[in-house]
Design a protein around this nucleic acid. Sequence first.
RNA 1: GGCCCCUUCGUCUAGUGGCCCAGGACGGCAGCUUCUCAAGCUGUAGACACGGGUUCGAUUCCCGUAGGGGCUACCA
Length: 443
Amino acid sequence: MVKVRFAPSPTGFLHIGSARTALFNWLFARHEKGVFVFRVEDTDKERSKDEFLQEIISSLEWLGMSWDEGPYYQTKRIDVYRDYAKKLFREGKAYEAEGTLGGEKAIILAMPKGTITLDDLVHGPVSFDMNLQKDLVLMKSDGFPAYNFACVIDDFDMKVTHVIRGDDHISNTPKQLAVYQALAIDPPKFAHIPLILGTDRSRMSKRHGATSISDYRQMGFLPDALVNYISLLGWAPTGDREVMPIDEIIREFSLERVGKTGAVFDINKLIWMNGEYIRARKIEDLIPLVVPRIKESGAIRDDYDKGRLTEVVRLFHPRAKTITELADSVAPFFTDGVTYDEAAVASVLAKEGVKAKLEVVIAKFSSLKTFDPQTLETCIRDLASESGTKAADFIHPIRVAVTGCKVGASLFETIALIGKEKTIMRLKAGLAKALSKYDSGPI
RNA sequence: GGCCCCUUCGUCUAGUGGCCCAGGACGGCAGCUUCUCAAGCUGUAGACACGGGUUCGAUUCCCGUAGGGGCUACCA
């Protein structure tokens, strides 16, 4: 029975790299129908914080990774580590030393001589000259176990069969192997997966920008899109598939197909993939995701028109890349005023002939009995042919006057959803805007 | 500095000696569509770090060089 673990230390938010490590462990466990253990490595009492743990747990849940065992807390197992360390001390394999952290003596393991070879599942055999290795602190003088010791004891006690972790731990492995050796117990199998890199190819960190799962959640990414994207960092399925549901990723996942080279996190590809997932998602399922964000902007309250919101979301559904973007596109449909993009006003509204066109449109719209996309399209196209110009010459100024910017969804559907009264109000506001610009100087 | 890891298009990658004058995806560029944007469709540019071997034949195997990264805590 395969058993793996994810063992973060709660000293910060769930990092994208840790999340990917968790994901590979989880995928491996699910693929092998094994057990996924969640362990909290909280032995650094200075840096460990409960708020971080809570954040890590909620991010894991948001991503859809559930564990079968745990959480185990290392701080609750201090006696276990101490007993093992004492045993090693009694056997003469470890020695004590005065410490600087607290009242207790540190227990230190003497490193063996010779060579230790790690048989890594992704890297193959890696040898280390143990004569170069410093003796390893097992128990710190504050009475807490050191990472490389607690980790070994836990993996052994919890019967972990495969340790899947970041490449950066590869140099810790000989130390841990020395502990297994001293204890005369069998080590698990190791698989060191490549790191996730920033654009400068160094390990992804704060200075590269957003690094935590919560950051990406906040930015409006969908969990399944994020999971799909990071699963492709350091791993590839057979064939040319990339966008694939989680069940298929689980079915396809194997350590043999994990690569060795660090992977640069490419937010552009994530954005694209998120767009794919948004488009694949039903409108009804998107509504509960955008509503809180629109509420935040103040555009709607609890008594919003649900039917109308659905229609507006439908309008932007094919073009939104993130939930944030979708909410930002939808919100203006529920506000009275318009925020004008001055550049758009200058290039589209403040032009000769626009004033006259807008006046005609206002007059025409006012006389309309129905205000649906078909009627509006016919209306504008007729207006254009009557005045001998292209429909575009009407459409662009109307869009800027009504929405404040040059780009957006289909104009006729847009103004139909905004409604006759509000559209005319905004056309007038746009007209005033055009006039003030036009008057203030030559074009 | 020492030890270790890595090296295919800008990026993620496929490729396990001939199927590769290297395939896919994102991004770029061009075009189609069109009321703008996005989406969609079509096309296009773009990589085996370098040098030695091994072999009838190397992107694939070996050695070296260069470059990048990681570790080097009584942090995890």
